[in-house]
Nucleic acid binder design. Structure first.
Lengths: 358, 358
DNA sequence: TATTTTTCTGCAATCGATTGCATATTGAAA
DNA sequence: TTTCAATATGCAATCGATTGCAGAAAAATA
């Protein structure tokens, strides 16, 4: 009888294995305990006899049981998951921030879900909604260039999900934030170039709806003012954040009657690379005839000829700060408090492209 | 009376909004229908009166209802989610594959969950288990350098989840695969260098537990054989897949009494970059004194001086092929059939670093 | 007009894991 | 020895969405 029961169970398990996953009820049945005991044994929660616990765990391993986190998270009301939305994952800056977040969350047994918006508002909304639907515990986001409306982020807050913005933030939303002091970094970069003797510095800026580009422009203006250099509006070019756009803007700038002698690509190193390629194409010597400064310390900035002066945003530190901010705020239910903003100081990395005096 | 009921409901909703998310039961209660009707109306499944359907959808929007996909997926037994595990997301190759997958899956309303193993077996196992627990419908993976054991992948299959391997595959597992013809690409690269007059070609190879590196080595050996060039084992260096490792290997090679006159960094363009930097440091002229060929067509290969000859793996096409393979196989329940392997042809990109005869 | 088919709604169960609490047993303390 | 506390287990409900099916009503067909 017992032998027959065992036999049927083996056949039943074999069929199941091909069609259905092992659940705690299968373990419970095999050990003649209830699912409740199995659950307690597997989670080491509540009281369970030590021998029973070991037997349950051994059987679970033998049957290759995998917990169903859909069910578990549904019941528990938490998922230990952080969703991250970035414009593009193949940009070093964002990839490094993610690495920094992962560095800290991995140790705490948190899962990371990474989404990319592809710099499209529509996709960003979809990413955010998908994460909301998945009941993640926190959403970390750097908004896309295309995003002019932040209702979807307000929605995150309304759903009771912690929202942390980093780098590109929507200022009007009162949320936790991790940022760089873009204005100061920009200010220092432009001062450096002025100190190198560059007198006519152009600015390649990004869309002014994004905080980071506004701040970088402010730093540029502040440096010019400090050195008593008048602002030439012909030297300020918008929407120059890709290599191609940077190259096109540079062609126009260098064809002005009163061409600039330096270009600050405040949007990205990719834009600066576009500048460098155009300068090379026009036989304009860098840094003696034209200074170039980028932003973000992409890997390639040190391998170009000459290497490109840029701003290091300490992206991995930023990622760690994001994760730590989340964990620090976990117990905090005081919602009338002003949400914290963490400021990671960027650094100016001086390289060949601006080293005129040497 | 009705006014009082409405009043209580508003207070109830307000409290709920701060503590609990709106569920279909809230909508049902408000409209005096059952949750069953609400569900049918929201999913447009089964029969539901048109006026009721519109009213339910309007109310859901007003209450900012968000479906709980934990519950939905649990009940439905499917998640419309594909999990992707790659060694590093900031490598262009992998980022582009992901972009290709996303390109195709986005149109079909599928969600993508991206994990990175950081080239660590331990993290790769965690990634895979997390995805299994999340009941994703499919796992797409390129294994890490560190992975010498593939039980975790067999486990994916055992759990009834579709597994697709790409690029770096475990040959012993009979799964769907999307690969490059690494051997042929390698063969062509080495033939090209031999045709350029390089006679002593060194190979920087990767760990031979990975299929891709074995194949690239085979192509190298085949080309040497075709040209009747004897194999010099001193010219074959293992574990040279980062820039730093490539640089170190190059120093040793170039200090040999009979130094090579070309180096094929078959592991990556990063390795080739290390070669280039060492050559520059030793005043060795590229391509006249030393030829350099990389692998993967990373973005920087066209901006170095000279630009680096490399292999383009058509990573985005690869990603699209992965997604399409998944969708093609969705209806297929014939498990006795040999799983398909899709082969994306790579292309040799000839640039300055190997252009000796010109 | 009677019969058949379609439409609609609600009930109850399902999915798999977790947990509050009742009950029984064992061990410790008075 | 009696009382109290700790240990252990099982029952039933919960989480939120989905869906099979029964029964009723409306529409279509004979």
């Amino acid at each position: 009888m017992q032998s027959i029961a065992e036999k049927y169970f083996c056949i039943f398990t074999k069929v199941m294995k091909q069609k259905k996953r092992v659940t705690i009820y299968d373990i419970a049945q095999k050990l003649n305990v209830t699912a409740s005991t199995v659950s307690r044994a597997l989670s080491n929660n509540g009281y369970v006899n030590e021998a029973t616990r070991l037997l349950v765990q051994k059987t679970a391993a033998e049957l290759n049981y995998k917990r169903n986190t859909l069910a578990s998270n549904l019941r528990k009301g938490e998922s230990k998951t952080i969703g991250v939305v970035v414009p593009r994952i193949n940009q070093n800056f964002f990839a490094n921030v993610i690495a920094g977040i992962e560095d800290s969350t991995y140790q705490k047994g948190y899962n990371l879900v990474i989404c990319q918006s592809d710099e499209q508002y529509k996709k960003e909304v979809k990413c955010v909604n998908t994460l909301i639907n998945q009941h993640v515990d926190c959403i970390v986001i750097s908004v896309s260039v295309d995003s002019l409306n932040y209702d979807h982020l307000q929605n995150v807050i309304d759903q009771g999900i912690q929202l942390i913005q980093f780098d590109r933030v929507a200022d009007e939303l009162q949320t936790l934030k991790v940022i760089n002091d873009n204005e100061q970094a920009s200010f220092e970069a432009v001062c450096h170039m002025l100190e190198q003797g560059y007198k006519k510095i152009a600015l390649l800026e990004g869309p002014q709806n994004l905080n980071i580009f506004r701040q970088r422009k402010n730093g540029y203006l502040r440096a010019l003012k400090k050195f008593g250099v008048p602002v030439n509006s012909a030297y300020v070019v918008e929407n120059a954040w890709t290599k191609e756009l940077g190259a096109a803007a540079t062609k126009k700038l260098l064809n002005l009657p009163d061409a600039p002698d330096a270009i600050f690509a405040s949007t990205s190193d990719f834009s600066a690379l576009g500048v460098l390629e155009v300068a090379n194409g026009m036989q304009i010597k860098v840094p003696s005839q034209l200074g170039i400064c980028g932003y973000s310390n992409e890997a390639f900035t040190e391998i170009t000829s000459p290497s490109i002066t840029t701003i290091d945003q300490f992206s991995m530190d930023m990622g760690r700060a994001v994760a730590n901010l989340y964990f620090d705020e976990l117990g905090n239910t005081n919602t009338s408090e002003i949400p914290k903003t963490i400021d990671i100081k960027p650094a100016l990395i001086i390289r060949g492209s601006t080293s005129r005096k040497s």
